[in-house]
């Protein structure tokens, strides 16, 4: 892997973000909207039961951590989509750039994007609802790492589907995340979901990561059992997503799907 090529891919993404104002919606606007929305809901329902602060913290911790998955996934998937939208895929495929270098470059840029998005949502949560995510301590770090891996894995699956079926699959960039949101027990315990859906929810690594985060918000120690389940699930998902993307890329090359992108 050549660092120069990885940096070039990341720099390309910086140019796009700089010159495409609509991209700032994902990085700035949605984090602000989500923080206000879920903070206000938490305060409102909390007041009904005299626990406004706890309720708001529960939801805000959820939305801050959800933005780890969201920003990681959107950053990687839209980074690739940009190449299809600008019909630049063939240009890249005829250079020495390897798939790994491309992924690393977009992920590198995605980390910067993630940092901006997380900062925005955290600052808004603190400024408007006095919720300081850092009070949850360093125990958050393994959860952030797990959610980052999940976000990237989902993005790899989306990219694989775009390679296989074309740009029609780009809606899944946002669609998969929309499914994860209700199924992962981010704003409520899994027991609140309909019984038929709960097994699906339990199979998701995000569910266990958010359950661990909720324990922290409630003042408990980090439940390592939940963290371990989440970590194993994230690793399995990562392996599956890499396998899937590799297969889809092979199909893309075998069936000449580059013709869809020139």
């Amino acid at each position: 892997m050549r660092a120069q090529r990885v940096r070039a891919v990341a720099r390309r993404q910086v140019y796009v973000l700089k010159r495409a104002p609509q991209r700032w919606f994902d990085v700035i606007v949605w984090p602000v909207v989500d923080a206000i929305l879920f903070g206000a809901i938490g305060v409102y329902f909390g007041r009904q039961h005299g626990v406004a602060a706890t309720s708001a913290a529960f939801l805000l911790a959820g939305i801050v951590l959800f933005h780890v998955v969201f920003q990681a996934e959107i950053g990687l998937a839209t980074g690739f989509l940009e190449e299809t939208w600008s019909r630049n895929l063939l240009n890249l495929m005829v250079t020495p750039l390897t798939e790994l270098e491309y992924g690393a470059g977009v992920a590198l840029f995605g980390m910067a994007r993630l940092a901006i998005g997380l900062t925005v949502v955290s600052v808004v949560a603190f400024a408007l609802f006095a919720f300081n995510v850092t009070t949850l301590g360093v125990a958050l770090l393994p959860l952030v790492a797990i959610l980052l891996v999940v976000g990237w894995s989902v993005a790899l699956i989306v990219i694989g589907l775009i390679l296989r079926v074309g740009q029609g699959a780009e809606i899944l960039t946002w669609g998969f995340i929309a499914f994860l949101l209700p199924l992962s027990g981010i704003f409520y315990p899994v027991s609140a979901l309909p019984g038929a859906i709960q097994p699906i929810s339990q199979a998701l690594p995000t569910t266990h990561a958010f359950a661990a985060a909720h324990a922290l918000v409630e003042g408990h120690a980090l439940p390592w059992g939940q963290v371990a389940l989440a970590a194993v699930g994230a690793v399995v998902l990562a392996v599956l997503s890499v396998w899937f993307l590799t297969r889809m890329l092979a199909t893309f090359r075998r069936r000449g799907f580059i013709s869809r992108h020139v």
Partner: peptide, 17 residues
Amino acid sequence: ERLRVREFLELFADLYG
């Protein structure tokens, strides 16, 4: 679309090492 010619070419110069 969102690149100047020089930026575009410099990116590829990097990709070519």
